[in-house]
Simulated scan of single mutants.
Amino acid sequence: MAGLATPMALRVAVTLGLPDRLLSDSVAADQLAAELNVSPIALDLLLRHLTTLGVMQQTSTGYRTTEFGANLCADAGNGLTNMLLHMDSAGGRAELSFVELAHSIATGQAAYPRRYGKDFYDDIAEHPRLRESFDRQMTLRLRMQVPRIVAGFDWSRFSTVVDVGGGVGTLLAAILTAHPGMHGHLVDLEATAADARHTFSAHNLDERTEVTAGSFFDPLPAGADAYLLSDILHNWDDEHAHRILARCVEAARPTGRVLVIETVGGLGAKSEFDLSMLVLYGGRERRIDEFRTLAATHGLVLDTVTTLTHERSLLEFQLAGQ
């Protein structure tokens, strides 16, 4: 359980592109090392361990990817490559912050800045490839659950929804497609917002959508019926979560609702993912009572909790006195 050899071997294999390179034909370790400009002896050690894991198999002419190992190929469609690449992938790079877990436990703060010198969001903002991989990661995380999220809640109650930090627009596009009478407004940083515009165009939603490039720490578009925060608050400590909720309430007054979709502590949250939120962002998967306390500061009252999937729930808040 404590060994690091296997998880790091898988990450290096994916980063070097070994599963894809060895999928169709068997290649000797020294030939492959020359192609990749790596040590032939060290590469052979890696390939032997991957063979032990069942990811590779040894043949008379070298190594090749097994059927099991093909799950690590770039086109496998399971998101693993995007999570394991530790050079050009936001997820893979972020996972390496776990070597600083002791710092997070001691301080309650994110380990990412300690390892990389800046927080996660500043880092991906400066590196377009990281930002793009993060957007892909978020899309993949939601993709299988979007139909149930759309079907599991009565979105038609709202004529206008602002998706705060809505990424490339996958969820909002699905909601609007299912409810032709609704209009949506997505807010995210410039590069991601540009991708959201493409998403809406691809779904023929240009007439019913608006996209604003900006931060959820800045004033939000006012007057919508609902403000949606999907997988947002768990990425932030209480100080920043308060700032985000304050912007939502400021824009939602006097009758708008605030909708929070997240993995809720005690309702599907996994302890491993809780630690990930801490190490990456200084956040956590809050429990219902923690959400109530957080929201009460802003005059928000928890109205309903709806289980959407095995991972995510929707918490609907209304302004006190509504």
Rank of each mutant, 00 (worst) to 15 (best):
H183T: 14
S159I: 09
V164S: 10
A174M: 10
V168G: 03
T177C: 06
L172E: 01
H185D: 09
S159E: 15
V161C: 05
L171D: 00
A178V: 14
I175A: 13
V187T: 00
V162F: 04
L172R: 08
T177E: 14
V168Q: 13
G169Y: 06
H183M: 14
M182V: 04
G181Y: 11
A178P: 09
L176A: 10
V187E: 07
V187M: 04
V161G: 01
L171E: 02
A178N: 11
G169K: 09
H183W: 05
A178C: 11
P180I: 00
M182N: 03
V164W: 03
F158I: 10
V164Y: 02
H185G: 03
V168N: 10
G165Y: 01
G166D: 01
F158E: 10
F158C: 14
A174K: 13
L172Y: 06
F158Y: 15
M182W: 06
T160G: 12
L186I: 01
V164F: 04
P180Y: 02
G184R: 05
S159V: 13
T170V: 14
G166K: 03
G184Q: 08
I175Q: 11
G184V: 04
V168W: 01
H183P: 03
H185E: 12
M182Q: 15
S159Q: 15
V161W: 01
D188Y: 07
G166V: 04
A178F: 08
G184H: 11
S159C: 12
A173F: 03
V168F: 00
L176F: 10
T170S: 14
V164T: 03
G184D: 13
G184A: 14
G167F: 07
M182L: 15
L171A: 08
H185R: 11
G165A: 11
G169T: 06
V162G: 02
L172Q: 07
T177L: 10
A173G: 07
G181F: 06
G167E: 05
V168C: 07
G166Y: 02
F158G: 04
L176C: 09
G165M: 06
H179I: 05
V162I: 09
